[in-house]
Design a protein around this nucleic acid. Sequence first.
DNA 1: TTGAAAGCGCTAACAG
DNA 2: CTGTTAGCGCTTTCAA
Lengths: 330, 330
Amino acid sequence: MPTIEEVAKAAGVSVATVSRVLNNGQVSPKTRILVENAIRELNYEPNMLGRNLRRSESRMILTMIPNISNPFYSVIVEGIEDAARKNGYNILLCNTEADVEREKIYLDLLKQKLADGIITMEPAIDIDVLKEVGKRYPVVQCCEYSEKINIPYIAIDNVTAAYKATKHLLTIGHKKIALINSDEKFMYARQRKEGYIKALQEFDIPVNEDWIVNAGLSFESGQRMMKYLLSLKDKPSAVFAVSDILAIGALKTIKDEGLKVPQDIGVVGFDNIQFANMMNPTLTTIEQPRYQMGVEAAEMLIKRIKDKKQKVENVILDHQLIIRESTMEY
Amino acid sequence: MPTIEEVAKAAGVSVATVSRVLNNGQVSPKTRILVENAIRELNYEPNMLGRNLRRSESRMILTMIPNISNPFYSVIVEGIEDAARKNGYNILLCNTEADVEREKIYLDLLKQKLADGIITMEPAIDIDVLKEVGKRYPVVQCCEYSEKINIPYIAIDNVTAAYKATKHLLTIGHKKIALINSDEKFMYARQRKEGYIKALQEFDIPVNEDWIVNAGLSFESGQRMMKYLLSLKDKPSAVFAVSDILAIGALKTIKDEGLKVPQDIGVVGFDNIQFANMMNPTLTTIEQPRYQMGVEAAEMLIKRIKDKKQKVENVILDHQLIIRESTMEY
DNA sequence: TTGAAAGCGCTAACAG
DNA sequence: CTGTTAGCGCTTTCAA
C-alpha cells in the first residue's frame, strides 16, 4: 500500500499538497491534476489510522443494541447506518444483551478513542453513569430514554400511541381490555400504561388491576402472560401488548387454548415488526418510524460530535395505528 | 484524557516502561505497581488511535451482512461479535442490502486500514473480485460460499440437510413434494436442490419440474410461489422451502386459501429462526448452528489476520432436522 | 500556491 | 530491567 509520501514523490510535490488535494484544500488546478493522476496510478487510498490519530477522531459511532436478534432494532440500525455512512461515519456494533458489564466495556471504547459518540437504545446501565458519560461524550438516546439526564432523545409519543391502540379496541366494542406491559423500569412502559388508562377513563371503564400484567420482552413472556389472563375467572375480551413479540406470544397461547382471534379475543401489538404482517391472523399494531428514528439519531449524534456545545433538542416522531385482522370488528 | 507520557511522568518512569506494563512486557514488580498506580490515579486508558497507527492494525472485523433485518443473520452476528470481542476485536457493521456498490465501498475500508479482515455471508459482488480481495486481505466466507476462490468457509452440509428434510416428508407418506428454492446463483440453493432430488430418487419418485420453483428470499416470494403451486392442476401435498421466511410465506398463503397445515399440506422450512417456533402451526425446519458458525468464522478470520500464511481449512458444522407441527403425520 | 517541519499517542529496536 | 529515540501516516501551522 502506497503512502502519502510516495504519492507526493510520484507527483513531484510535497506531502502537504497531496493532503490538500485529499481534503479539498487550496491547490492550483494544474497541481491538483498532477496529484490526482499519481493517486490513480498508485491506486492510493489514505490510511485512516494516520488521519484518525492526527485528527484525534475515529469516525465511528458506537451503537448499543440490547438484542440484535430482536427485529424491532434491526430497522433502526439500518437507519443509523445509512445516515452515518452518508456522513462518513461507520458503525461499531455492540450487542449488549441488556448486560451492564458488557455495556461498560463498550463505553470504554469512547475513552480509548475508538468511537466518537454513542447511540443507546435501551441502556441497562445505571442512569447516573449514563448521565456522566453524557457530560463527557456525545450521546443520543433512541426510543427508550430518560428525561432527567440532559441527553437528547428520539422517540415517539408513547402515551398517545397506547391511547390510540386502546381506544381502537374500545371503539370496536371491547370493554374488558388487558394490558401486557413490559417492565415498568422502562419509561416507555410507564407511558404506554398511562395511555391505556387514559383511554379506559375516557370510556368510563374502571381499570382492572388483574388485567395489567408485567412481562419480560420475549415471546415466551407473552405466552405466559396470556396463559395467566385466560386462567382468570373474569377473562378479558381483548389484549393490548406493548410489543409485537409479546402479542405474537399471546396469539400463540390463545390459539393453543382453542380460542379464536379476533372472534374470541382481540389482540393489538406495538412496533409493527415485519412479522406482524406474517401472522395468522395478521396483527393490529402501532407503527413506529424505526428507520427514520435511526436516521435522526445518527444525524443528531453527528451534529453533537462536530459541535460539542450543541443545545439539546429532542425529536418526537409520528406513529400510526395499523389495523389488521387481529382486531377486525367482531 | 491523559496520555502515556503523563502517566510516565506521574510514575517517574519512561513511556517505554508504561507501554511495557500495558502490554505485559518485562517490568520489575516494583515499577509495575508504580505504573499501575499512576494509571489508576489518572484514570488512564490507552489511546487506540496511537496504538493502531503504530501497529498498523485496526482490530476491526468487517462483517458484511446482506440484510440485518433477516433474523437468520442476526444470530450469526452474535457469534461473530462474542468471539471477536474475546480476542480484542470489534465488529464493523456493514449492511449490504445485496448491493454491489455498497459492498465495494465496504471493501475499501480494508485498503483504508479501517478493518483487518472480512467475513462475508452472501457476497453480491463478482466472484473474481472477491477472489482478488482474498489474495490481498484476510477473508472468511460464512454460510454461502464458493469453492473455486481459495477462501476458507464455514458452512453446513446443505445437500444432506435438504436430503433429510425431503426424506422426512417422504417418510410420513408424502409423494408429491414441491421445492421452493431461492436463486440458483447461490451455491446453497444448488446444493439443497441436489439433496431434495437425491431423496426423491431414493424413494423412486420422479422429479416433477413444475414443483420446483425459484423465489427471492422474502416472505412475499414465499406467498407468491405457494400461490402458484396451489394453482396447479396437480397440486403438491407438501412443500420444502429453503428458508423459514419462504416457508412462513407459504404457510400464510395456504391458510389464506382455506387449507390446513399439516392436514392438507405439509411444510418444511430451513434455518430454524426464532419465529419458526412462534407460528401456527409451528414449523418443521433444519437447524443451522448459527451462533457457532459466527464464532468459528470470527476465530478463523482472526487466525488468518495474525498469520497471513495460514493454510485454508474449511469447517462443516452439524445441522439438525427439527420436527414440529407443520409436518405432523397426517 | 506550495513546502518544511512539528507532532498526534503509541510501540519497539537498541543501548546501557 | 529501563530509558532514549525513531517513526507509523497523516494534517496543519508557519514561512516563503
